[in-house]
C-alpha cells in the first residue's frame, strides 16, 4: 500500500514537472533536437546533474539506501535501440513518458503516438527471440556497470575509483555543461529562450 501511495505522489510530481519544464511539448523537443533552442537541453542536463549529486551525496552520508539503485545492462542493442528511439523521438516529438503525459494533457497526436507505441512494444515482444539469438543482447564491458565502483552496490565499476565521488564529479560536470551550453547552436525562427 505504501508503495502505491509513493507511486501516486512521485508519479504525479514527475508528470506535473515534465509539463512545467516544457518536455511534453513536441515543439520544444523539436527545437532542442534541431538545436535552434537548447533551453530544454539545459534543463535536462541540470536535472541529471542535480539528481546525481543529491543521490551520491546522500549515499555517502548514509541517508540514501544504495540498494535503491537500479543499473541497466550495457549491450550493443542499447545503442541500436537508442538510434531507433532517437529517430522516432524526433519524428513525433514524444518519448514514452512525455507521450503519455501529453495525451493526458489533451494532445490528440499523442494518442496516436501511444497507439503506435503499443504496437511497437508488441512487435518487440514477438521479435525478441531473434534479437536474443543474434548475440546483440549479450553484456558489454561487464553489463550492469557504473563508471566508478559504488560502495555497497551490487554493480561492478569500470574503474576502481570511488563511485560516489565519481558520481558527484560527473554530476557537477553536467551542471557546468548546462550553464556553459549556449541557448542556440543554429538560428531559427524561435531561437529566443523561453521565460
Amino acid at each position: 500500500m505504501t508503495s502505491i501511495i509513493l507511486a501516486i505522489i512521485i508519479g504525479a510530481a514527475f508528470g506535473a514537472t515534465l509539463d512545467r519544464v516544457g518536455a511534453t511539448n513536441p515543439s520544444l523537443i523539436g527545437r532542442m533536437l534541431n538545436v535552434t533552442n537548447l533551453h530544454l537541453m539545459k534543463t535536462i542536463l541540470l536535472a541529471i546533474g542535480t539528481g546525481s549529486i543529491l543521490m551520491f551525496g546522500g549515499q555517502m552520508l548514509g541517508l540514501v539506501d544504495v540498494g535503491h539503485m537500479s543499473v541497466k545492462a550495457a549491450y550493443i542493442g542499447v545503442f541500436i535501440g537508442g538510434l531507433l528511439l532517437g529517430t522516432g523521438w524526433a519524428m513525433s516529438g514524444y518519448c514514452p513518458g512525455t507521450g503519455v503525459c501529453a495525451a493526458a494533457s489533451g494532445r490528440k497526436d499523442a494518442l496516436f503516438f501511444i497507439a503506435g507505441g503499443l504496437f511497437g512494444a508488441a512487435a518487440y515482444m514477438v521479435t525478441y527471440p531473434a534479437w536474443k539469438a543474434s548475440g546483440m543482447l549479450e553484456d558489454l564491458a561487464g553489463g550492469k556497470v557504473t563508471i566508478g565502483t559504488v560502495p555497497g552496490a551490487p554493480y561492478d565499476g569500470l574503474t576502481a575509483m570511488s563511485g560516489d565521488v565519481i558520481g558527484i564529479v560527473l554530476g557537477a560536470l553536467l551542471v557546468v555543461i548546462a550553464f556553459a551550453l549556449p541557448m542556440s547552436l543554429r538560428t531559427g525562427g524561435h531561437a529566443v529562450p523561453a521565460e
Binding site: 541497466k72 545492462a73 549491450y75 542493442g77 542499447v78 545503442f79 541500436i80 535501440g81 537508442g82 538510434l83 531507433l84 528511439l85 532517437g86 529517430t87 522516432g88 523521438w89 524526433a90 519524428m91 513525433s92 516529438g93 514524444y94 518519448c95 514514452p96 507521450g99 497526436d109 499523442a110 496516436f112 503516438f113 501511444i114 497507439a115 503506435g116 507505441g117 503499443l118 504496437f119 511497437g120 512494444a121 512487435a123 518487440y124 515482444m125 525478441y128 534479437w131
Partner: peptide, 17 residues
C-alpha cells in the same frame, strides 16, 4: 507520423531496455 514515431520509439526502447 506520430503513430509511426511511437512504433519506432517503443520498439527501440524495448531493444535498449
Amino acid at each position: 507520423v506520430a503513430f509511426i514515431g511511437g512504433f519506432i520509439v517503443l520498439y527501440g526502447a524495448r531493444l535498449a531496455g
